[in-house]
Structure formats: structure tokens, C-alpha cells
Design a protein around this nucleic acid. Sequence first.
DNA 1: TTGAAAGCGTTACCAG
DNA 2: CTGGTAACGCTTTCAA
Lengths: 347, 347
Amino acid sequence: MNLKTLAEALGLSQTTVSRALNGYPEVSAATRRRVEEAAAQMGYRPNSRAKGLATGRAMLIGQVIPTSTEHEMVNPVFGDFVAGASQNLARAGYDILLTRVPGDDEGKVYREFRARGAVDGVIVQAPAVNDERIALLNDIGLPFVVHGRSTGVDLPYSWIDVNNTQAFRRATEFLIQLGHRRIALINGLERMDFAFRRRKGYTHALEAAGLSSDPILMCTDEMTEEFGFKKTRHMLSLEDPPTAIICSSILSAIGIRRALQEAGLVMGRDLSVITHDDDLSYLKNGQDLPIFTATRSSVRMAGELLADALVQLISAPDEGPITRLLEAQLVVGSSTGPAPLQAARLG
Amino acid sequence: MNLKTLAEALGLSQTTVSRALNGYPEVSAATRRRVEEAAAQMGYRPNSRAKGLATGRAMLIGQVIPTSTEHEMVNPVFGDFVAGASQNLARAGYDILLTRVPGDDEGKVYREFRARGAVDGVIVQAPAVNDERIALLNDIGLPFVVHGRSTGVDLPYSWIDVNNTQAFRRATEFLIQLGHRRIALINGLERMDFAFRRRKGYTHALEAAGLSSDPILMCTDEMTEEFGFKKTRHMLSLEDPPTAIICSSILSAIGIRRALQEAGLVMGRDLSVITHDDDLSYLKNGQDLPIFTATRSSVRMAGELLADALVQLISAPDEGPITRLLEAQLVVGSSTGPAPLQAARLG
DNA sequence: TTGAAAGCGTTACCAG
DNA sequence: CTGGTAACGCTTTCAA
């Protein structure tokens, strides 16, 4: 069933049928109704590629699957992100085109997207400090939005981000107020922008309180359970061990918990732990961990908001970049509801 | 840069350039080299939609984002699945078209895929018992592969599945051998095919050992942490409580652990727990739980294998369905390596 | 071995 | 308000 046969069946021209179906005003109400009914009844849907060829738009948004460098694992919340993005993109008639990058040449994929006209825009995940993808996309003129920001890039671009600096400053200040002086930071890879900002918030809070940041208490790596475990075990063996740890991921925080258990220490009594993570759904697995986060299901929401921004960017490119900073809140809870903050007050 | 300008720049016809680039034999080696070099140098890539319109293929595989009924959360391993699928699809020149279903009308999406010619095939996730999507896809003639199987559907179709029945029979037999007689089953929603098969394996093993299955020890629901927690707490309060639990998901098993802790019981000593899950990466969060699974990263591998099957199905539709059953192994480990099975021997 | 031209299914311009 | 026709960028058939 294509436009031609539908038009013939109706005794109308393809032009009129197309206009009726696409909501053009110069069609009589009676004709439009007749066309719409016939189309619905015959199950007519315009061919995507033909429509795209004629209009010059793909109605597709490109998304490269973000795999972590280590183990090629995909962030568990990626599904929630695309679910959110996909939902709001669908409202504007877009679908997501997913593709994987074999090596590290994500730029090549974007160039190809552009050259083939495969997508109308892209979503960029996990920006690094000085991320080169932003300049590239800017150069080739492919509309894009960034999930996160990139320190060092001074081009204007659209992004949405959690206020990581603020979040880690607050967490640090909070522990300082409880009397802690030896506060460790178990952070993600600091070439990633989010981790860079988190460290900044941490050191700023220490400096503001007149405390020096001890390099031995700061570590950075891919945030696995193992990383949290090993670093905690090591730090507990120091002459002057930390009394509190701020952690960048609940996965590593679970490793911290393991190290404490192994050492016969009780989290929240012998050592305070505060964890950041993007999504409270993780609480299911780490419900005894104090956590601060942006909002409930912030990742899904980020997907929704970024989708809206990208759609607007494509339809009205001259309105300038759209940005939004989500403030992190200190949320302490368990899967069964609010729970008392398990961060020990010293002294 | 399109075919026309490239052809003009080379002083050749569009036909010859197209043939050279698409590997047709009737082009002289010299011409082909010249064309290929010019195309590479000028960054020419054929327009996706034009090519698709001319060839009648979209080079896109449809994938509906599978959200759980409850809370609209996406399975954390979905990202790994699409990473695997995407990788192998890319080898054959396909990308994935992701879309979300607002309500429950996934069939409508497939019909639209077909009518718009938007995709060349689809991947079906999470089949239920008697899943109606299979008959629909068969009817409308859209090539598809299923991640899992559907009991009750007698049409031939391509699938890949973990041997759930076998896995749960083995786990049950194992506990029986250890001397257990009161073995509980905390299962997923049994309208889902995987859960249906797991229960079958469990009851078969009990029957084979001459044990009767007690309805009070079998429960089924969406596999949340809360579900495992509440059911365990309830079963521990019974007059004749279970001495072992087989669980369908590590998330619920974490709830079991919580219930045991609350009751002052030690897992593996006071009560045995064996958990199934699709991917050992979960071990990061539940490393003290005995687990059996298909393989390491089985979900990612399933994506890869299903991608290959679908590509073959599209290119050679008459070869018949492709099926593969992955045998589950009893894998007991922690994130740091193999660990002793924490299942108590009774008596 | 190469080229001209028809066709893929739409939209959009220009007449009427 | 409606219709004919060019155009979108490619592949493929038919001729040379």
C-alpha cells in the first residue's frame, strides 16, 4: 500500500492525498476526512525512506553506545536513559538510531552520520575534560546535545548536567561539620568531566575549611567494586587512616563496605561513607549506604530533557544552546523508605 | 557531496561510479581504484535514504525498548544486549532502530515498521507464554528473532534461550542431594516464559525425588529486592519453614539476604540460597550469593548470536529457523574469583 | 567496460 | 481547493 494506490483507490491525485494526510490547510474538510479514513482503513503509512528523501530529514537521532573502556561493559542505567529519550523523541516523530563504535573513532561515526544523512542529530554521552567530539560536531554542523559538560571547551553547546562540584562540596562540608578531618575521596577516572568536577568540589570544601588535601587519600580509577575494596583496604592500613570516605559510585561503595566488613569495622560507626550515584534504583543493592543524587531516576529524566532540547535545536537552530544544571540533593534512604543518615559524628 | 558531483569530478557516469563503489565485477581495476580513491578523499558516502529507497532495504533492525511493567524500569543488562547485537549487526551493515512503546501495543509498532518499511527485521525481547507477537510478526512477514522462547507457540521461529528448565532442575536436585526437603522457589512472573520453564524444572526435580511441591513455598512476582525480602520474611515465619531457597534473580536474592540478616540467620549456614541470573556482572553487588548462570556475559553473547541469526534470516529466508539453547552452568563465585558454595548440607 | 534513463515513494512547486 | 510534474540520490536495466 503506497501513496499511488491509495490515491487511485480514492480517485484523487497523490498530491491531494499527501496534503490531506500531512495537515496542509488547502484541503477541504470533507476530502481530508475521506482520505484519513481510507488511509486508516487500508493501513497506509508513508514509506520512511521515501519521505526522508523528499523532505531531507531522517527523523532519526544517532546514539553511540557508550561502553566503558574496561571490560566493554555498558552502564546499567543506559537503558533508562534511552527509554526516557526515546519517549520524548517519539512525541516529535523521531526514533533513535543506535550504533556501536568498534575502536575509539567515535568522530568517524559522526562524520559518516553526516555524510550519509543518516540522522538529524546526535546525543553525546560521557564527556571527558576537553572532549574533542564537541568541536567536531560543531565543525560538521550536526546538531547535538551532551549528557554532561566538558571543562575546557569554550564553544557554546547544549548540555544537561548534575551539579557535581556542588554535590561533592556539600558532602565534604557535611563530613567536616561532623568533625571529620581525614576525609578520603574514591573517585572515577578524572579525565572524565564528572569526576574532574567532583574532585574540584571536594578540594574546594577542604580548602575552605583550612584543611589540606592529602594525595594519599585521593584515588581515581574506573569505578568498580574491586577498586573501592582495594583502595579502602589500603587506606585502612595507613598510619593515619581516614575517618570518612566520599565515593563517586555506589558500585565502589559496595566494595568499601566489603573492606570494612573484612576489617571488622561497622560502616557509619567506625567510618563514615557517603556515596554519589545517578540513580536511586541502585539503592536496591546498597540500601545501607548514605547516598546523594540528583533526583529520583535522574538519568531517565536527563534522557527526556535532552531529547526535548535536541528536537528544539533541530527545529529552531538559531535560538542558541539550551543548558540545564540539575542540583544534587542529599538523599538518604533505603528501598523501603527514608532511613537515618549513617554517617558517624566524631568525638 | 553526492554521487552526481563525485561522478562529474571524475568525468565518469553515476552508473560507473556506483558500480565501482559497490564491487560490481564489470568495472576495470584501474577505474575502480581511481573511483575509490576519489570517494575516500572527498569523503563521499552514499545517502542512506536514497540508497534504501533504491534497494528496498532499510539496513535497520527494529528493537522495542523492553520496560518492565512495574516502575517502567529497564533491565540493567539491556545495554549489554544491544552492545553485543549492535556489534555483530554492524559487520553486516545494519544499525539498530530503537523505539519505545507508550502503552502495550507493541504489535502496532511492528505493523508500522512493516508498513513504513522502516526496518528489515526486529528483535523480540522477553517473550511470555503463548506470546502473540510471534504470530503477528509471522503474519505480516517481518523477519524476527526472539531472545527467549514462547511455550505454546507452535509456529517455527528463530530464537536463542538459556536452558531454564534444566538449570532449575539441576539447582533443585543439588539441594535435594544436600539433604534438603523443604525447598522454596522465589520466581519471576510466571506468565513470562523463562519463569514458567524455571518452575517446571523445579517441580520436575521435586517429583523425581518423590517430594511434593508445597504451594506455600512457591511464589511468583516481578523480581524486585522487596519481593525477595517480604516473601522470605513470610516463609521464615511459617510453622514448617524452608531450609533452602532457589531464587530467579539476584536482585530478589539480595532481598532474601536482608530478610535473613534481620532474622539473625546466616546464609549458607542456617538457610541455603541459590540464585539464577543472566549475567555474572551482578556478582559485583551480590558476591556472597551462590549463582548459576549461562555463561559469562551471556546476555551480551545472546545479542551477538541473535544478530547473526537475524542477518542470515534476512539474507536467506528459506533456510528455516535458527535456534540455539545455551546450557546453564552452576557457577559459584565472587568478584575476586571462585568461592566455596555457600549451601548448607543438612543433618 | 561504460553510459542513459527509468524507477524507488514521497514532498513541494507551480498552474489552474 | 485540486492536479501535474520536478526533485530528492541512489540502483539497476537496457543499450552501446
